[in-house]
Every structure is written in structure tokens, then in C-alpha cells.
């Protein structure tokens, strides 16, 4: 960061930006660590109760909690990953999302490949949905919605947890929209989606080919994102 020329009369601490209004520095507050410990214990207790009923539920409970925690602490945002390159020229989140895709791709690949080579049915095949124009139309609609409401599904949920009031409204209408969507999803499935083509990359490129194509595409996008940010910063500097 470039240092600003500071005149001798400056009363502020060195390296700080001078401001005339009173800096409302955060007041000392009671430690929130005890609350944290209580909440953590509650999470564990609820998890154990879930486990007694259904092991799956406990697994979802713990992974969901950890996912939310990481999402919040990392300020990870899928919306920002696609919006910020245009708005700020920053692609740090875009690269983070691409990295996450690469890691999950490896995981999916390992699970599916292990099942396929053991002669077992390949897990997750029912999620290989047909793609066609409807995929792009849906993506654009979802994109408009998430930029207006300030977050995708995970981001909105996370910010509701942070206590951001406006997005409680978003989540209410997210639920309304999802219910309406689910109610007539069958019609779209039969009349539109079914005409698309399901592509499972392993069937086309082979197991290792699919991995190479997938990771290669992600790597190219990563490099493009990196170059894009550098070009934007270069333009801003002149």
C-alpha cells in the first residue's frame, strides 16, 4: 500500500488514515467464548441424539455445521465469485471456487471410479441431468436472482445465521420459489428437460480421460481468471 504524505501536525498514529470524526473504536465487550463453548456442546449433543436415531442425520448435521462455519469464516461466496470479476476485477473468489470444484471433482471421480472398477453400480448417476438450452436459461434466471438478493442458497443461509435481516426476506421467498418450482417440476421434466442429453464424461473420454478433461478445463479457467484480474489491475493503475 502506498503511504500518503503525512504533514507534521498529524496527530494520528503513524500509518493510519487521518479522520476528523471520532473513530468509534470497538468497546470492550464480555468474552463470547463461554457462549461458544455452550453452542459447541449443544451441537455435539444434538449430533449424538441424531446418531441414536439415524446415523445419516448425524453425518449431515456435522458436515452442514462445519460447511457453514467455513463458509462464514472464509467469506466464501459463490455469487461474488461470478459477480466480482465484472464489478471489481477481483477474481480471488473465482479462483477459490474453481479450486473447490477441482477438489470435489477428484473426490467424485475417486468414488465413482472405485465403484466402477469393483463392478458395483456407480453412485450419483441419477444426478447426471440432461443438459440443453434449459440449463443456460435456468442459470441466467438464478444468476439474476442471486445478484439481486445478495446471495445464492448457501450464502443467503449463512448470512441469515449472521443475523442480516434483509436476507431473511430473501430466504422466505427462496422457499416460496422453491415450493412453486418443485410443484410443477414434473411438467418441465417431461416436456423440456427430457429432450436434453445426459453426458457422463467417463462414458465419452474414459475414466482417466474424463479426469484430465475436467481438471484441464478448470485449470484453464483458473489461469484465465488470474490473467483477467492482472489485466484489470493493470488498467486501473494507469
Amino acid at each position: 500500500m502506498a503511504d500518503s504524505p503525512t504533514p507534521a501536525v498529524d496527530t494520528g498514529t503513524p500509518g493510519r488514515i487521518r479522520r476528523s470524526s471520532v473513530s468509534q473504536t470497538r468497546k470492550k465487550k464480555a468474552s463470547t467464548i463461554p457462549i461458544g463453548i455452550v453452542v459447541f456442546a449443544l451441537i455435539v449433543v444434538v449430533g449424538i441424539l441424531f446418531a441414536a436415531d439415524q446415523a445419516n442425520l448425524a453425518f449431515f448435521w456435522f458436515t452442514g455445521t462445519v460447511f457453514g462455519y467455513i463458509l462464514q469464516k472464509a467469506r466464501f461466496c459463490f455469487t461474488a465469485s461470478l459477480r466480482d470479476p465484472y464489478l471489481t476485477g477481483g477474481t480471488s473468489l473465482t479462483k477459490a471456487v474453481l479450486t473447490a470444484f477441482a477438489v470435489t471433482s477428484l473426490g467424485f471421480w475417486a468414488i465413482q471410479y472405485a465403484a466402477a472398477s469393483a463392478g458395483l453400480p456407480i453412485p450419483g448417476q441419477s444426478f447426471v441431468a440432461p443438459i440443453n438450452v434449459h440449463t443456460a436459461v435456468g442459470g441466467v434466471l438464478f444468476g439474476i436472482g442471486m445478484v439481486i438478493s445478495g446471495g445464492c442458497a448457501s450464502g443467503t443461509l449463512m448470512r441469515v445465521g449472521e443475523g442480516f435481516m434483509m436476507q431473511m426476506l430473501s430466504i422466505a421467498f427462496f422457499v416460496v420459489g422453491s415450493v412453486i418450482g418443485a410443484a410443477h417440476f414434473g411438467w418441465w421434466m417431461e416436456n423440456v428437460i427430457v429432450h436434453g442429453r445426459s453426458i457422463h464424461m467417463a462414458e465419452i473420454f474414459g475414466w482417466f480421460g474424463a479426469l484430465v478433461v475436467q481438471l484441464g478445463t478448470i485449470a484453464l479457467l483458473w489461469i484465465a481468471a488470474d490473467k483477467f484480474a492482472k489485466a484489470k489491475q493493470g488498467a486501473a493503475a494507469h
Binding site: 500500500m1 502506498a2 500518503s4 493510519r16 488514515i17 473513530s23 468509534q24 473504536t25 470497538r26 465487550k29 462464514q72 467469506r75 461466496c77 455469487t79 461474488a80 466480482d84 464489478l87 471489481t88 476485477g89 477481483g90 480471488s92 473468489l93 445478495g150 446471495g151 450464502g155 448470512r159 449472521e162 443475523g163 442480516f164 484489470k232 489491475q233 486501473a236 493503475a237
Partner: peptide, 29 residues
């Protein structure tokens, strides 16, 4: 601001644009 997302992209943009930036947490969130 009180939106955690703006905590990230506002300083990031301002720093990239070459301005001096400081962040102060004035209250919880």
C-alpha cells in the same frame, strides 16, 4: 457496512484501485 460480504469486496476493490484502506469493527457485525 453490516454485510459481511461487503467486508471483503469493498476493501479488496479499493486496495486494487490504489487507495489506502483501513477496517474498523465498530460493533458485532
Amino acid at each position: 457496512i453490516d454485510h459481511s460480504c461487503a467486508m471483503k469486496n469493498v476493501p479488496e476493490w479499493a486496495r486494487e484501485a490504489g487507495h489506502n484502506v483501513e477496517i474498523e469493527e465498530v460493533d458485532d457485525g
